[in-house]
């Protein structure tokens, strides 16, 4: 096996590792509401979320993968060093913010990493302005969409159940939360795994291992979904062990409204080919549900941290990726 192919395989493994970490990080979002409402035990919830992360590989399209592969920077400037630098930029920034406790998005970090490495490689002309503008706008739009949809759904639930006995409502939402949690895990799986698919596919395409036309082979789809599902399983078990049930108390109807509206928002973005932060979208949904009860009950510190993260993630991960590219290019 030649050196170049070995290097490409190494980068594919790093990309799948990034996907695994994504599932690991986001496992809490997928299982928190359904565990806190005691619909499932932590162990059952983790398996439920990982299963739907994986099932998302079938039938939900690859629009986001195409955007990552062809809509952020010109594919002609992409090589092994650009992709490796982009991944390192995203991973390093994720680790820094994880240490600082900032709720940043792995997706935004990956896009920032791609931009930074591409610019360091061939200048600012490589940026595909239309694609980056769409992604940048949806960084802000997607939490708002989660918020608005959750408010409408929570108000609808309140009206429909105004004269229903609490016991009956509890039984209904325990069942519906199984569906909404599955929908959220499905949405999370498809949007997030497709980012890794796009990275791997564009790497193989630009190095001549994918033929003359950009496409995403099925083995990449399956591998990316398997990696994110495995990450959710691993991350979920860690949560079970270290957090137990110290998760914010939510009513089953609140969990249903937040999960269903966030799932719809993420699936919408996926169908129009826009990579979004699944974490920030469900945060918008939870804030929306909380706002229908009492706006002062919302933890605004978390919301402000999200706003802070919007402005910081892409420039910072782009900076780390650019620096990584300069260092690797000098060897």
């Amino acid at each position: 096996m030649d050196w170049e192919l070995t290097f490409i395989i190494f980068i594919v493994v790093v990309a799948l590792g990034f996907d695994f970490i994504n599932g690991f990080h986001d496992a809490a979002n997928s299982v928190a509401t359904i565990v806190s409402t005691r619909v499932l035990t932590p162990g059952q919830a983790v398996v439920w979320a990982a299963f739907f992360n994986f099932v998302a590989a079938f039938g939900l399209g690859i629009h986001v993968a195409n955007t990552i592969g062809k809509g952020v920077i010109e594919a002609s400037v992409i090589d092994e060093k650009v992709i490796l630098s982009a991944l390192i930029g995203a991973i390093v920034w994720d680790l820094i913010t994880w240490r600082l406790g900032l709720p940043t998005s792995s997706s935004h970090a990956l896009i920032g990493g791609l931009i930074g490495a591409g610019v360091a490689s061939a200048g600012t002309d490589v940026i595909i302005t239309n694609g980056v503008e769409r992604i940048g706008a949806f960084i802000v739009i997607s939490p708002f969409v989660g918020f608005i949809a959750a408010v409408f759904l929570a108000l609808g639930v309140m009206r429909l159940y105004a004269r229903v006995a609490p016991g009956s409502a509890q039984g209904v939402f325990r069942r519906l939360q199984l569906v909404s949690a599955a929908a959220y895990s499905l949405a999370h799986g498809t949007n997030d795994a497709q980012k890794t698919m796009g990275i791997i596919a564009v790497l193989l395409f630009s190095t001549g291992h994918l033929g003359s036309e950009f496409h995403v082979p099925f083995w990449i789809v399956i591998s990316a979904h398997a990696a994110i599902a495995a990450g959710t399983l691993a991350g979920g078990w860690r949560i079970v062990k270290t957090m137990g049930l110290r998760i914010t108390k939510l009513e089953p109807s609140d969990g249903f409204a937040a999960e269903a509206s966030s799932a719809a928002a993420i699936l919408f973005a996926t169908q129009v080919g826009i990579p979004v932060s699944t974490t920030q979208t469900i945060a918008g949904g939870i804030i929306g549900v909380g706002s229908t009860k009492r706006l002062s009950a919302v933890r605004w510190g978390v919301a402000l941290n999200i706003v802070f993260a919007w402005f910081l993630t892409i420039p910072a991960s782009a900076g780390v990726a650019a620096l990584t590219f300069v260092i690797t290019d000098s060897f």
Partner: peptide, 18 residues
């Protein structure tokens, strides 16, 4: 009946929103 009504309501609210 409540489960069916809630699912229908979710569809009726989310579809026009999106």
């Amino acid at each position: 009946l409540l489960t069916i009504a809630t699912a229908a309501m979710a569809v009726l609210i989310l579809t026009p929103t999106f």
